[in-house]
Amino acid sequence: MKIKSQRDFGAGLMFLAVGVSFALGASTYDFGVSARPGPGYFPMLLGLILAVLGAMVLFKALTLETEDGEPIGKLAWKPLITILGSVVLFGLLLPRLGLAVALPLLVFGASAAGDEFSLRDALVSAVVLTTLAWLLFIKGLSLTLPLWPAFLG
């Protein structure tokens, strides 16, 4: 079998592997039922959806012919490290600085990874995402996430 699009093949393989690993990791938690989902329900569902999407992209890469074969380009190390670093920093800072500080830092860090950084766009995204996260996770789901830094209250 010939790989007709290296880029789609690599992306499909990555999505499939990440989806399957999330689904396997979620299988160690209680699944529950649809009416009362357990802690493993949502990660399992997302993992399976990601694996199915990855399989579809992988199948497309093996069946559709492209003109140049769409070779996989160079790995963009700077954006990859910047975004991963922002996510790790968010995880480390959330318990100490709260959602209102850690999430905007994540947004600004991840936005800086792109070629077209706009301070106004990053600021709007940070405000909107922080407000939505506060409404969803703290107000809606009553999770015990700190909103403000620990030293403030």
Score class of each variant (00 low, 15 high):
Phe31Thr: 08
Phe151Arg: 10
Ala61Cys: 13
Ala23Gln: 11
Leu92Pro: 03
Met44Arg: 14
Pro95Lys: 03
Gly114Glu: 02
Trp148Arg: 11
Glu65Leu: 05
Ser111Cys: 06
Leu62Ala: 13
Thr130Phe: 11
Pro149Leu: 02
Leu106Ser: 01
Leu92Phe: 15
Leu89Pro: 01
Ile81Phe: 07
Leu53Lys: 03
Leu84Glu: 05
Asp121Ser: 12
Leu13Pro: 02
Phe9Pro: 00
Gly47Ala: 09
Gly73Trp: 08
Leu105Val: 08
Thr28Ala: 14
Phe59Tyr: 14
Ala17His: 04
Lys139Leu: 15
Pro95Gln: 02
Phe22Asn: 05
Pro149Asn: 04
Gly25Tyr: 04
Leu103Tyr: 07
Trp134Val: 09
Glu116Cys: 02
Ala102His: 02
Gly12Cys: 01
Leu45Ala: 08
Leu147Asn: 04
Val101Ser: 09
Lys60Arg: 15
Pro39Tyr: 05
Leu147Trp: 09
Ala26Ile: 00
Gly40Ile: 01
Leu45Arg: 06
Ala122Trp: 04
Thr82Gly: 00
Gln6Thr: 09
Leu53Gln: 07
Val87His: 03
Leu103Ala: 08
Pro146Val: 04
Ala100Pro: 05
Lys2Pro: 11
Val52Asp: 07
Leu143Trp: 10
Met56Cys: 13
Leu141Gln: 05
Ser125Val: 05
Leu136His: 05
Phe22Thr: 10
Leu84Pro: 01
Leu84Asp: 00
Arg7Asn: 10
Thr28Tyr: 09
Leu103Pro: 07
Val20Asp: 08
Ala100Gln: 08
Met44Trp: 12
Leu58Ile: 07
Met56Trp: 12
Leu135Gln: 10
Val88Gly: 06
Gly47Asn: 06
